Lab assay of single mutants.
Amino acid sequence: GSMEQGFLPKGWEVRHAPNGRPFFIDHNTKTTTWEDPRLKIPA
């Protein structure tokens, strides 16, 4: 929902695949990933 959306880094969006699995869109680089960007520790 909109709650989890608010925690994503700037430029990211979460969508759900037809099977219900969430995936993440990085509008900054125009890419998608199954990995939650929030789980990655910034270098």
Rank of each mutant, 00 (worst) to 15 (best):
Lys30Ala: 10
Ser2Gly: 14
Asp26Trp: 01
Ala43Leu: 13
Ile25Gly: 05
Ala17Ile: 03
Asn28His: 06
Asn28Val: 07
Phe23Lys: 08
Leu39Ile: 13
Thr29Leu: 05
Lys40Cys: 15
Trp34Asn: 04
Pro37Asn: 01
Gly11Gln: 02
Asn19Cys: 14
Thr33Ser: 07
Ser2Pro: 12
Thr31Ala: 06
Asn28Pro: 01
Gln5Arg: 10
His27Leu: 09
Pro22Tyr: 08
Pro9Asn: 05
Gly20Arg: 01
Pro42Val: 14
His16Val: 15
Pro18His: 07
Asn19Met: 00
Thr33Trp: 08
Glu13Met: 00
Ile41Pro: 12
Leu8Thr: 01
Thr32Tyr: 11
Arg21Ser: 07
Gly20Ala: 02
Ile25Pro: 06
Ile25Ser: 03
Phe24Trp: 12
Gly20Val: 00
Leu8Gly: 02
Arg38Gly: 05
Gly20Phe: 01
Ala43Tyr: 10
Ala43Val: 12
Thr33Arg: 04
Lys30Pro: 02
Met3Leu: 14
Ile41Ala: 13
Arg38Thr: 05
Trp34Ser: 05
Pro18Tyr: 06
Gly11Asn: 07
Lys30His: 14
His27Arg: 01
Gly11Asp: 04
Lys30Gln: 13
Thr33Met: 04
Ser2Gln: 13
Phe23Trp: 05
Ile41Asp: 12
Glu13Trp: 02
Asp26His: 05
Asn19Lys: 02
Val14Thr: 05
Gly6Phe: 08
Pro22Glu: 14
Leu39Val: 09
Met3His: 11
Pro22Asn: 07
Trp12Tyr: 03
Ala17Gln: 06
Ala17Val: 04
Lys40Thr: 12
His27Ala: 05
Ile41Met: 13
Asp26Phe: 04
Glu13Thr: 01
Val14Leu: 08
Met3Glu: 09
Arg38Ala: 04
Glu35Phe: 14
Arg21Gly: 06
Ile41Asn: 12
Trp12Ala: 03
Thr31Cys: 15
Thr29Ile: 02
Ile25Phe: 10
Gly20His: 04
Glu13Lys: 00
Phe24Thr: 01
Asp36Gly: 01
Phe23Gly: 06
Ile41Phe: 13
Arg21Glu: 14
Gln5His: 13
Gly1Thr: 12
Glu13Gly: 01
His16Gln: 09
Ala43Trp: 09
Phe24Pro: 07
Gly6Ala: 10
Leu39Thr: 13
Pro18Ser: 11
His27Phe: 07
Asp26Lys: 00
Lys10Pro: 15
Thr33Lys: 02
Lys30Gly: 15
Gly1Leu: 13
Phe24Lys: 00
Met3Thr: 11
Lys30Phe: 05
Asn19Ser: 10
Asn28Ser: 06
Asn28Trp: 06
Asn19Ala: 01
Trp34Thr: 05
Trp34Ala: 03
Lys10Ile: 09
Pro37Tyr: 00
Gln5Ser: 13
Thr29Ala: 05
Glu13His: 01
Lys40Val: 10
Val14Asp: 01
Glu35Asp: 14
His27Tyr: 07
Arg38Met: 05
Asn19Tyr: 00
Lys10Glu: 15
Thr32Pro: 04
Asp26Ser: 01
Arg15Met: 07
Glu13Asp: 02
Pro22Thr: 07
Arg15Asp: 04
Gly6Met: 13
Lys40Gly: 10
Thr29Asn: 09
His27Val: 07
Leu39Glu: 08
Met3Arg: 12
Asn28Thr: 07
Lys30Glu: 09
His27Thr: 09
Asn28Gln: 06
Pro22Trp: 07
Gln5Met: 15
Ala17Tyr: 06
Asn19Arg: 01
Arg21Val: 10
Val14Trp: 00
Phe23His: 06
Asp36Glu: 02
Glu13Ile: 02
Pro9Met: 04
Glu4Ser: 13
Met3Val: 12
Glu35Tyr: 14
Lys30Leu: 08
Pro18Val: 08
Gly6Thr: 11
Gly1Lys: 12
Thr32Asp: 03
Gly11Pro: 00
Asp26Cys: 09
Gly20Ile: 00
Gly1Asn: 12
Thr29Cys: 15
Ile41Val: 13
Leu8His: 02
Trp12Asn: 02
Ser2Ile: 12
His27Pro: 05
Phe7Arg: 15
His27Lys: 05
Pro22Ile: 14
His16Pro: 02
Gly11Arg: 02
Glu4Gln: 12
Lys30Arg: 09
Asn19Phe: 00
Arg38Tyr: 04
Glu35Ala: 07
Gly11Tyr: 03
Lys30Asp: 10
Leu8Cys: 09
Pro18Asn: 07
Asn19Thr: 05
Pro18Glu: 10
Trp34Met: 06
Pro22Phe: 07
Thr32Trp: 15
Asp36Met: 00
Pro42Trp: 06
Trp12Leu: 04
Arg38Gln: 03
Arg15Ile: 08
Trp34Leu: 06
Trp34Arg: 04
Pro18Leu: 08
Gly6Asn: 10
Arg38Leu: 03
Leu8Lys: 02
Trp12Gly: 03
Ile41Trp: 11
Leu8Glu: 01
Thr32Asn: 05
Leu8Ile: 03
Ala17Cys: 15
Pro22Arg: 09
Gly1Arg: 11
Phe23Ile: 15
Phe7Leu: 15
Gly20Glu: 05
His27Cys: 14
Arg21Gln: 12
Lys30Trp: 05
Ile25Glu: 06
Asn28Tyr: 06
Val14Ser: 03
Glu13Ala: 01
Trp34Asp: 05
Glu4Pro: 11
Gly1Gln: 12
Glu35Cys: 15
Thr31Trp: 05
Gly20Lys: 05
Ser2Phe: 12
Gln5Asp: 11
Thr32Ala: 10
Pro18Thr: 08
Asn28Ile: 08
Ala43Gly: 13
Ala17Met: 13
Thr32Leu: 15
Ser2His: 14
Glu13Arg: 00
Phe7Glu: 15
Arg15Asn: 05
Thr33Asp: 04
Gln5Lys: 12
Phe24Ile: 01
Trp34Val: 03
Pro22Gly: 04
Gly11Val: 00
Asp26Ala: 01
Ile25His: 06
Thr32Arg: 11
Gly6Leu: 13
Thr29Pro: 01
Lys30Thr: 06
Met3Ser: 11
Glu35Met: 09
Pro9Gln: 03
Phe24Met: 00
Lys10Trp: 07
Gly11Met: 01
Ser2Trp: 14
Thr29Gln: 04
Ile41Arg: 10
Phe23Ser: 07
Asn28Leu: 08
Arg15Trp: 04
Gln5Leu: 15
Thr29Asp: 04
